[in-house]
Nucleic acid binder design. Structure first.
Lengths: 341, 341
DNA sequence: CTGAAAGCGCTTACAG
DNA sequence: CTGAAAGCGCTTACAG
């Protein structure tokens, strides 16, 4: 029960392989109606399916692209990946998914495997540990798009949030609602991860804009496992913050857990705005004010940028595409002094 | 700047392609130390990377497998996919991800594309609309594993939750805590989707086990967009339920939204147990009692089953692997009559 | 210990 | 309008 090949079809239809190939590629210009029908019938009878691997080898194009995320379990990544897969599938590309876990060694290995498999392009949520590898791809004019994070000094199209503004929106909203002392908490600031750095930066700028002092003890950026401890420090400060900005969905979970464990009432005892929309924001008590990212548009844009590189001959100058965050006001950041419920 | 091929390496090292190939495949048995070093050096100098597509064509194996989920946005799917990707990557396989959206036409197209791309195997969260396609794969002895859902009459290894028991655990727990009238709500029961059908079935059996009547008006299975209306019906029954079992994470969101909008207090006004662990279960007020699935073990098992098919010659008889759910007791299902907070 | 040759299943420029 | 031939970049059985 061997799979039929193009030769089998050719033999069965009494034509040459070339002619079958013409048929498969819909080049009917010079094909006699009768030949065409015969081939069509043979394909159906033999239940022939072309072998894309052979085709790829000849055409040097696999219609497959690789996506390397840090971890697909983050809802931001899940959503972006879903949007990418949709867009690529619409254009008859397949998507290979890889989780690099912010580990440059793992990321490098994935890149090499994907290149060896001749994927036509790469969409990467980059770690900052493989600049040399990225540079090689850029130099070779290999199609590549970054998402979520930039890598400085590298000319690569990048799709990301306007993080500066995201933090600014949160600060502005809290200030307008009467909060004075505002803290911010993100996951570790060590790796120089763009969104974290930019969000803290945007937080500082916004405070300055409102002529409020930037207090270093209000800025917390540590690995997830240390966040509870950081929160304890925050709340035992001589002057604890009146509000806190959560840098992403992971910090949010830590903050909510800490609050629950310590009987701190969100929205009442402390104001809260979190960056990244979460599924339960609306049904939480109190409902959570969030700054959301247009994840689907971002994924779609990343896929589009890559697809364009396949079509257009010349490489256009690379750009950073900053997407606009939007503030969704709910109850966790109600005006100070206003009674709740 | 063309990519170097095995011929370039051969020429550069003054050996034949065969010898380079031996080197690449680490068959050093008969290779002179000196030859080996020369090849090694040439590869490094030319920065040669083997072309896996060519290799795949010859070896008839791509080291790539396809995963077709309904929708990766469901956290169950995200987690299973993550586990699958990890396991496959450990075994040097790549994972192509596809979202079929419960659409048999889309699913069929994905299967065909993946087969044309010569993936070595398939892991599918099956719709029930492509039995003929599955049957063809089974007949051809093509490696395939189902996840989450079974397809009756088909001999395919399947990894799923013991749904019957999951619903049973929820019922038992509620009954033990004094709840009398227990409803269950899932998404649409039309498509004959295994987990939904089995959960409702398990619910019924458990009620009978406790000698409680099964009341059809307490069983709700509709498309997500109709759930609010179904909830309204439930709560306007002459005798509304005292507790509700949520069939999955989507129904949970609808229930929580409905409760919030209508001032119904979860855990106080109505007991709640939800199947599928959700990230915020612990920090919700009240915290949510859940029945959780061992998602990562399930994904790993699915990958393992597939990998085994590649290694073992003979096809072992196919099996259904039922995974055990676990009840995580929290506050949304506290004993009736016991005061809360 | 190494090389020449055939072949995996396609596509395409060219000839007729 | 169709076919023979070369080639994509590998692997492997076989010969020496």
């Amino acid at each position: 029960m061997k799979k039929p090949t193009i030769s089998d079809v050719a033999e069965h239809a009494h034509v040459s392989k070339s002619t079958v190939s013409q048929f498969l590629n819909e080049r009917f210009d010079y094909m006699r109606e009768e030949t065409r029908e015969r081939i069509e019938k043979s394909i159906a009878e033999l239940n022939y399916q072309p072998n894309v691997v052979a085709r790829s080898l000849k055409l040097k194009s696999t219609a497959t692209i690789g996506v390397i995320v840090a971890n697909i379990l983050h809802s931001f990544s899940t959503q972006v990946v879903r949007a990418i897969e949709d867009k690529l599938n619409d254009n008859n590309f397949s998507t290979i998914i890889c989780n690099a876990d912010d580990d440059p060694i793992k990321e490098k290995r994935y890149i090499e495997t994907l290149l060896a498999k001749q994927v036509d392009g790469l969409i990467i949520f980059p770690t900052s540990g493989n600049i040399a590898v990225y540079q090689r791809l850029v130099d070779a004019n290999y199609p590549i798009v970054f998402v979520d994070r930039c890598v400085s000094g590298l000319s690569v199209d990048t799709v990301k949030l306007e993080n500066h503004e995201a933090a600014g929106l949160a600060v502005e909203h809290l200030v307008m609602n009467g909060y004075e002392d505002i803290a911010i908490m993100t996951t570790s600031l060590d790796g120089d991860i763009t969104p974290r750095v930019e969000r803290v930066d945007g937080y500082k700028c916004a405070l300055e804009r409102f002529q409020k002092p930037v207090q270093e003890e209000y800025i917390k950026g540590k690995d997830r496992k240390f966040l509870k401890q950081e929160l304890a420090e925050l709340f035992s400060l001589p002057k604890p913050p009146q509000a806190i900005i959560s840098g992403n969905d992971l910090t949010l979970m830590e903050i909510l857990e800490y609050a629950t464990e310590n009987g701190i009432k969100i929205g009442t005892d402390i104001g809260l705005v979190t960056i990244d929309e979460v599924a339960f924001a609306q049904v939480y008590h109190p409902s959570l004010t969030t700054v959301s990212q247009p994840t689907f548009e971002m994924g779609e844009k990343a896929a589009d940028l890559l697809l364009n590189k396949f079509n257009s001959e010349k490489s256009i100058k690379s750009q950073i595409y900053n997407f606009t965050p939007s503030l969704i006001v709910r109850d966790s950041s109600k005006e100070v002094g206003v009674s709740h419920e």
